[in-house]
């Protein structure tokens, strides 16, 4: 799975929580939760969605490494 596919999977997961987002409007290097307005319940659902989609269990301790869209894609790419 290349980074493009992973990125597409992340966006699709985000859309399930926040259907209104536009992919082009997300800055890959800016804090993701602020851009998409994700509260802790939304964030947990994103983590759950990623778990289902990619089969990767993201521990709470790693949340700090998932600040931006770029971070998330890199994190998943390293484990997928």
């Amino acid at each position: 799975m290349d980074e493009g596919e992973i990125r597409a999977g992340v966006i699709a997961t985000l859309r399930m929580i926040a259907p209104e987002i536009e992919e082009a409007a997300i800055e890959a290097d800016a804090p993701l939760r602020d851009q998409v307005d994700l509260d802790s319940m939304d964030w947990l659902n994103v983590i759950l969605g990623l778990h289902e989609r990619f089969g990767i269990d993201i521990p709470e301790a790693d949340y700090g490494r998932l600040g931006t869209l770029k971070d998330v894609v890199a994190y998943l790419a390293a484990r997928a």
Binding site: S40, L48, E60, A61
Partner: peptide, 17 residues
């Protein structure tokens, strides 16, 4: 909570709420 969640699968994680 951190201890409790560390022992749980992602599907059973608790939020502070």
């Amino acid at each position: 909570l951190a201890r409790a969640n560390a022992a749980r699968p992602v599907t059973e994680r608790l939020l502070p709420a």
